[in-house]
Design a protein around this nucleic acid. Structure first.
Lengths: 215, 215
DNA sequence: TGTACATCAGTGAACGCGCGTTCACTGATGTAC
DNA sequence: TGTACATCAGTGAACGCGCGTTCACTGATGTAC
């Protein structure tokens, strides 16, 4: 490869629609993340994937880190939407279990994206000069919104008398920890002899459900 | 920096002791991992840290990936030794809780090292041509040896009538998942309002302990 | 005991590569008159 | 309705950098005779 060339067939965006490329850049980065590892996501690779030249990215993002932040923000929105969409069922336990299954599926189907979402310290930026408190709040809020679905799920199980939890907040945190741990550890150690039923067992324990899975 | 220079004060190893540098290289890479992020660990950076020139590494390891594998292998040995050393106490529940605390401390005190240990898929090499089945077995065994401590811990709690677990293997896996999830999620989201007592709550739930923490 | 030689541990210069980033530019499109 | 001009979206060439990796080498140390 001599140098980065733009895709000649790509039409330039019209005057007011330059912002469209912003989304194409995020989509390209997300796509790279879905089909390769995080280290494959370079500024030039994103540009290649989007069919533009590398400097074009600077019109839309300050640097690669800003692109990745946009990718993660978007992914958290998607995760939250996925969890909310899965929160259906007559019984509260069914709804909670469906949410947990949806969480695990999200992580399993997009392992590298999931890794990046949780692979950086949300608080203090690893690179970059200093995170403003606004950035901190934004990132923390994204995680919290998805987390709230679990809190609601457990609270409704308690209401229906299906959970012995005395503290939905603490147990939802424990459940989140369990789902996150299972997602990442399964990806890291696929050859581990994972016991069947671990997923149900984990959810039932952590949400303190009293109803058996099949009833 | 013009180019990589060796530390002139470093004495060369004597004839039969060339293998000593192998360990110094692993130690240097581990040290970098303890004080910086994984991306800071390059072949040249390891050489600088060890006070040698970059090509010297090739006398001992095929490439950076081989160095990192040695780092991870060593870290798993250390983790297992740490867990076994922590397995003390009169009551089985005390021993199990001590092991869990030791696990969490290990991860918290060396977050980047822990990340690398669990940050790669153990099974199929991300990079590299093909992992031999021997390599697969070696890596899987390392994880399993540490895992066995948890299995023993739960089994002994059952023996003493302090756990209602009917399947130590499954529940030990769940416990491992919980410890791993708590370790990584806490590191990722330090600003999350982590409930007090989450650690005890998690261990008690997953190991199905019947005895309260304070008694 | 001395000496030639092989081996061993590590050096230093050099290479090509992909990277992030800069800079001046091009050419299409909307707008003012 | 036409035309000059400003703006906007994106290009292409170029830069310096740290990287992994190669190669021929150096100089100390052990060994054979």
């Amino acid at each position: 490869m001599t140098d980065v060339k733009a895709d000649p067939s790509r039409p330039r965006n019209a005057r007011g629609e330059g912002a469209r490329l912003s989304e194409e850049i995020v989509a390209a980065a997300t796509s790279l993340l879905q089909s390769g590892s995080a280290s494959a996501v370079t500024l030039r690779a994103v540009a290649r994937e989007a069919g533009i030249t590398a400097p074009s990215i600077y019109r839309h993002y300050a640097d690669l880190d800003a692109v990745l932040r946009a990718v993660v923000d978007r992914a958290f929105d998607e995760l939250e939407a996925t969890l909310r969409a899965a929160y259906v069922g007559d019984r509260a336990t069914d709804r909670l279990r469906a949410v947990c299954t949806a969480y695990l599926s999200f992580a399993r189907e997009q392992p590298n994206l999931y890794r990046v979402m949780f692979g950086v310290v949300w608080n203090a930026g690893d690179s970059g000069p200093e995170p403003t408190s606004e950035e901190l709040d934004a990132r923390a809020k994204l995680g919290l919104r998805a987390f709230e679905v679990l809190v609601t799920g457990i609270a409704e199980c308690i209401e229906e008398g299906r959970s012995t939890s005395a503290d939905p907040g603490t147990d939802a945190a424990a459940l989140w920890v369990g789902l996150h741990g299972l997602s990442t550890l399964r990806q890291t150690a696929p050859s581990f002899p994972w016991p069947g039923g671990l997923e149900d067992s984990l959810v039932d324990s952590l949400a303190r459900l009293t109803e058996p899975t099949e009833s």
